[in-house]
Design a protein around this nucleic acid. Structure first.
Lengths: 336, 336
DNA sequence: CACGCGAATGTTAACGTTAACATTCGCCGT
DNA sequence: ACGGCGAATGTTAACGTTAACATTCGCGTG
């Protein structure tokens, strides 16, 4: 069935049926109290009769705003944390009765300019760009001045507000935690080398160690899976001085722990291990993995705020949202 | 800064600056080829100068359609499979250059009528309702006739298209698989009793067993976690006749497997185990869990199709999307 | 009973765009 | 030079809503 113009009843139709002016019908539609109860009834009846649906287009044409924020994404929502950020965003939007307009970009058109161009013709009052890694035009992109724009990115941008999880803070917290427990030989086990998250975690780890004058050992890298962690764990068994391992995600941490235990070492008594993402709660029997949990919900919520209330200043803000270290049972005092 | 009416340049402004009519400006904006190249240049320059942004409101007011589908959700996107369904939906939308308008409902207003009422005043040509479990007004809900509506639900609805994963099919596939491998004593281990997914999986399992005249043993229930699975696994050790276990999710399956192994049984040689959701790939070292994987992406994509091309017939369709059984290494031929 | 006054309702215009139709322009052939 | 013709551009009206202003209604008062 058609949904073009002329389909569906307009306020004028309702008004005619109820024998009032369109303005009165409009007042009823908007819950104004300046309408006599019997008139209101007549109008409501007419609306029901015609199954009237207000025209968003006409309303926002008059109002000049949409009460909606755009979100451009590329890649999959599966990526760790992503769904929570989306959730934080929609939750914040809900609170303020905003809708979210979601635009998915194919990977081959996943750049900021294209996303922005597409979003500009949609009913949004602001936009959030959340593309994979670092889009090719990150440096050259200029946000449209008619549309407040926020990029979810760890890097900061000359003209555009940016926000993301604090990857460096993650490394710093973890190293601090280990140090507080008396550890001095703290290894890092990365995920895929090319991954941005991985790179910044490794950098943060190295910095934190150097700042304390601790020994930096060239890290090993897995592919984010538990099996790759297991292999690496088997090699770490020979690294006698190591007492603490910082794994770049939880699966690798789990793999390492299983390997160490299979080799006769005790976790955490002999070696402490910590993961990142806190993604495996309830999934591994009898294993309570200490992990660093990002505050993805907060990232989403703040992105929403930035998009709806763009800060006035000259320099665009660059916000890093800290997470929390969740202490469970895989970190202990360093052995003597 | 304001974004009300009067903010931002309109086609009229562009036209004035470029010394053409608004119609010509409109033609340029829409890429019509009936414009002389030099004129086009002038107009484009004016657009850039004024950082013109087309008014979605005005366009769709004329066009009478929005090229967008609404999605109402309540609860969290974290729930297994949900994000994939959303992803399938947005992917399908992308292919057809549709946007998705996302509306999150607070849990206390999560009913179909409220969702539909809110969505009706947003810029959408159709809506998909994806609320938790079974909303209170499921039976009484009448979809607005001005807005094609699809409900993601395992139950079917008298006036409204519905679609969901085929929970029964999941049980049937799993039982079939076990039977083919020669198993006859097939236990079911559920998650939380009240969960709808759990109930329908259990029902399907029982039906499938009865149809074959197989022995039905009252199932045990965990709370979806691996630890609860472990406990149950320890009890199942004493169930000498049992050779196959159908766990209602992967975490429980993993817990069971660990318990059985700790008790000296071999999986799959002595007992076969299968999970549901296929959610733990790469997460458990040296464990390749056979599992049933729902086709969530397809559910999302079909929901989109139903919303954009509502079928004409009298009876609304009720679509169950089958998944696939992923054979890995936790199911073997039944022991003699 | 006319007057006044606030409450209820009506009228007009405008938001920005584009389809449909109307006009003008530039150029070719004779 | 002139008619003719297609290409380029312009004019008008309409999409549905609501703010602002205008009018009418009903009722109590002097």
């Amino acid at each position: 069935m058609a949904h073009g113009p002329g389909t569906g009843a307009s306020l004028a139709d309702v008004a005619k049926l109820a024998k009032v002016s369109t303005q009165t019908a409009s007042r009823v539609a908007n819950g104004s109290d300046a309408v006599r109860p019997d008139t209101r009834e007549r109008v409501l009846a007419a609306m029901a009769e015609l199954s009237y649906r207000p025209s968003f287009a006409a309303r926002s044409l008059r109002a000049g705003s949409y009460h909606s924020i755009g979100l451009s994404m590329s890649g999959n929502m599966e990526a760790t944390g992503r769904r929570f950020q989306v959730e934080g965003l929609t939750a914040a939007a809900t609170r303020r009765r905003y809708a979210i307009t979601l635009l998915q970009l194919d990977d081959d058109e996943a750049n900021l300019s294209e996303a922005s161009r597409r979003m500009a013709s949609l009913p949004v009052d602001g936009q959030i760009l959340y593309l994979g890694a670092t889009p090719p035009d990150f440096a050259t992109f200029e946000p449209p001045q008619a549309l407040p724009t926020v990029i979810i990115s760890t890097q900061h941008h000359p003209y555009c507000a940016t926000i993301s999880n604090d990857q460096t803070g993650c490394s710093v917290s973890i190293v601090n935690h280990f140090v507080q427990k008396g550890h001095r030989e703290i290894r890092f086990v990365g995920g895929r080398r090319e991954s941005f998250a991985n790179v910044s975690r490794q950098k943060g780890w190295e910095q934190a160690l150097r700042m304390r004058g601790l020994h930096v050992v060239e890290p090993m890298h897995g592919d984010w899976t538990a099996d790759s962690g297991y292999e690496i764990g088997m090699q770490l068994v020979n690294d006698k001085s190591c007492t603490a391992i910082y794994a770049s995600n939880d699966a690798i941490a789990v793999g390492i722990i299983y390997a160490l235990r299979d080799a006769g070492l005790r976790v955490p008594q002999d070696i402490s291990v910590i993961g990142v993402d806190d993604s495996l709660v309830g999934v591994i029997p009898h294993l309570e993995l200490s992990s660093y949990r990002f505050n993805d919900t907060q990232v989403g919520a703040l992105a929403f705020d930035l998009a709806t209330n763009p800060p006035e200043g000259k320099k665009p803000p660059h916000i890093l949202v800290p997470g929390t270290l969740v202490e469970r049972s895989t970190v202990a005092q360093a052995p003597r």
